[in-house]
Design a protein around this nucleic acid. Structure first.
Lengths: 213, 213
DNA sequence: TCTTTTTCTGACCATATGGTCAAGACTATG
DNA sequence: CATAGTCTTGACCATATGGTCAGAAAAAGA
């Protein structure tokens, strides 16, 4: 018999093929969106036949589902690492850097996520309202405590996080536009972006000793 | 006879129906993306029959094309208004505000654009490399001149613009996520975002009289 | 090696979708 | 109010696409 809701993982062949399929699917889904992608495209990309794909997964939606599941874990990881520090400005800037690196190294994942959200997040709305919201609220409390201690400038923690997400993910999701306008090489684009974003958030976060003492 | 590459506009009925169709198409395309949308959906949304839609437009792609054309014009307008000013910080912040208002008032247009870019901008890559790049480069020179005059802090003009685009459009394109995390009402979300973004860019742009004099 | 289990595929099916067309309904106007 | 032109639609077509299935081909065991 050969059942398995979605991911198989027993034999050597199963492990290899499922990985192969998921990688191909990520490539295709992140480029054309869910409805714009076909099993044939994924099959071609994976170098397998369509029925063979359906042998490993219960359908197009199942493949997409597995990708989204894994994605959320990867996606939230950097934020989880945001923690106590005696230099909160550096700590937050390090988070910005990590997020930017993810845009550079995992643009497909970023676009898959963006596609999903753009279309109303039909398949991950629960995760957004659950785990994502919890984690975010949690980190916002941490940020608020830094504000209360005067270690960073006063600002809305939630919107700060939105700004970090948007500015960093922009370099993955809107890469075509960035390239069209900048025309720089990939490394150049990300290096200058890194410098810029660090400066941006540092300026915003560094507390102003307004009227001093 | 009844020819017209795409937009008809002679009789009263033609004007009304084309507008009706374009509005419905914007709704559908911005929600499901080009390939995820069907003519039937557009027809239903517009309250017309499918053949009737095709009487006014030469096909699905033609409708999409018209929408994209109009979009680019609307989209670049705010940036065009960025001009000389004796208070560049205010001038740029006003641009940020205008962009945020567009996210609030025209979220469908924002998502249509995002969808197109995400998928590699197949239909507007030329416009990005042409008009968009020209305009952007142009405004970057203006910003650079402000920097040279010491009126705003030194920073990379291109990346500054990317930051403005990404942070403001985030509230339209990722609205579902923002809602999931914030849970605030629409007006609340945009009001607090406005405050936050103004603070963010003001902090970054205001020149530091580092070693004074 | 022989048998069992897993893996793979060509052929097929049902449905969805972009698009056409001939004919009917409606409108404007001479 | 008749007629030319405009508008609308039901019925249809060709193709694309998600998915199935019976049986062939490999692998894995015994």
């Amino acid at each position: 018999m050969a059942r398995a809701a979605s991911t198989k993982g027993n034999t050597r062949i199963q492990r290899q093929k499922t990985k192969q399929i998921l990688d191909a699917a990520l490539e295709v889904f992140s480029t054309y969106g869910f409805r714009g992608s076909t099993i044939d495209q994924i099959a071609a990309q994976a170098g397998l036949s369509k029925p063979n794909i359906l042998y490993y997964f219960d359908g197009k939606e199942a493949i997409h589902g597995v990708l989204l599941d894994r994605l959320l874990h990867t996606w939230l990881e950097p934020l989880e690492h945001l923690g106590e520090s005696d230099n909160p400005v550096d700590e937050i800037c390090a988070y910005v850097t990590r997020k930017l690196e993810m845009s550079r190294d995992y643009p497909r994942e970023s676009r898959l996520f963006a596609n999903e959200i753009l279309q109303g997040a039909p398949n991950i709305i629960a995760e957004l309202q659950g785990p994502l919201k919890s984690l975010t609220d949690d980190k916002c409390r941490l940020i608020q405590s830094w504000i209360d201690e005067g270690k960073i400038a006063p600002l809305d923690p939630h919107h700060l996080i939105f700004s970090i997400w948007s500015t960093t993910q922009h370099y993955a999701d809107f890469d075509v536009q960035v390239q069209a306008v900048l025309g720089a090489s990939t490394t150049d684009r990300f290096e200058t972006a890194q410098t810029h974003l660090d400066r941006l958030f540092r300026a915003m976060l560094t507390p102003q000793k307004a009227d001093d003492i």
